[in-house]
């Protein structure tokens, strides 16, 4: 492999790692800061990706797509004739909006109840979204998938070096989201979230509406995930319901947050790079080590081990409070929502 090939590979790797980092940031808002247990990331992943793709893709050719009738086509004519590039940005916003809306509905139903119900409901959402896109061929071409998803600023650079442009796009979006989430969780609002995570009853007793704060956090995190899905759609430019299997769209992201440290946004991004690096790197290993099933097994073992040894993740949360507190309190397990 020549040096150019290596760089191309690394660029592709960085794009995927940063897209995953966006999801890890969203999950961090759910789990890391608020203690909400979302195991249906795949659902928001798919919703965000399909929303962005359907809004920007060209219309289906009736000769080739018998069942598929929906297919956006909003980019080229329609109400807002802005061209593909503006629609890419609108697509990101729409993906966030759709995911936020679904999160609002699910959250309103489940977040008043016991914590467990949210996780079961998110699992149901993930499966239902997949069933929808698998069965409703008119919406997104069913299992044959959606392709011809356009590039953002596709005519600025040559197709073979497009990734060099897109890596910057993803980086910028990721940094904006990082700054936004970081700002949100450092605000008084974010302090309430962490208070809910640590002790819900005490937070409620001090006059905070726990349900509202949880709902806001759930919606915010899901919107971040929606943007991640949209970025993914314009990167791979092919979507099928099979893309969003629980392994690569939910469990890997959990592993990333666990490794990076829940409650630590920088850690979430770092975790995304480390886990994706290990994931992508191990495919060059010989024998059983590169077997996807083996990697699945390892992800499971990793999650259990971290839960047993360091429930706050490997890096853990950086707490400024630590210095101000007496040693007996600060010395406690720097766990997440334990």
């Amino acid at each position: 492999m020549d040096i150019g090939g290596v760089i191309d590979y690394l660029i592709g790797f960085a794009i995927m790692a940063m897209i995953y980092a966006v999801f890890a940031l969203g999950l961090n808002v759910h789990w890391g800061f608020t203690g909400l247990f979302n195991i249906g990331i795949a659902g928001f992943f798919a919703l965000g990706a399909y929303t962005a793709a359907l809004l920007t893709s060209p219309p289906p050719d009736p000769d080739q797509f018998e069942d598929f009738i929906f297919g956006g086509n909003l980019a080229n004519h329609g109400l807002l004739d802005l061209g593909v590039d503006a629609w890419f940005l609108l697509g990101l916003a729409a993906a966030a909006l759709v995911c936020g809306l679904v999160a609002l509905i699910i959250g309103t139903i489940t977040l008043r109840l016991n914590d467990d119900y949210l996780s079961i409901a998110t699992l149901g959402i993930a499966e239902s979204v997949r069933f929808f896109f698998l069965n409703e061929k008119w919406a997104a071409n069913g299992s044959k998938g959606l392709y011809r998803i356009p590039k953002f600023l596709g005519d600025v650079v040559a197709p073979e070096s497009y990734d060099y442009l897109y890596v910057v796009v993803v980086l910028v979006v990721m940094l904006i989201l990082f700054a936004a989430v970081q700002r949100a969780v450092r605000s008084p609002w974010g302090r309430v979230l962490r208070a809910i995570r640590e002790d819900e009853v005490a937070t409620a007793a001090s006059g905070k509406n726990v349900f509202h704060f949880k709902l806001q956090a759930f919606v915010l995190g899901s919107m971040v995930m929606g943007i991640g899905g949209a970025l993914f759609a314009h990167h791979v430019r092919f979507l099928s319901p099979l893309t969003f299997d629980p392994l690569l769209a939910t469990f890997v992201i959990w592993a990333m947050l666990m490794v990076g440290g829940s409650g630590n946004n920088l850690g979430a991004i770092l975790g995304a790079f480390v886990v994706w690096g290990v994931w992508a790197g191990t495919q060059f290993l010989p024998g059983v080590l590169s077997d996807p099933s083996f990697r699945l097994l390892m992800i499971g073992v990793l999650i259990v081990t971290i839960m047993l040894l360091r429930p706050g993740g490997l890096l853990g949360e950086w707490r400024r409070i630590v210095e101000r507190r007496p040693a007996s309190v600060a010395g406690r397990d720097p766990a997440g929502p334990d």
Binding site: W254, I299, P337
Partner: peptide
């Protein structure tokens, strides 16, 4: 440990069993 940690661990077990 909180129920969320227990459930998270069970999710890890689920993934590991399926991998196995």
């Amino acid at each position: 440990a909180s129920t969320a940690i227990l459930m998270m661990a069970s999710l890890g077990v689920a993934i590991a069993i399926r991998g196995l």
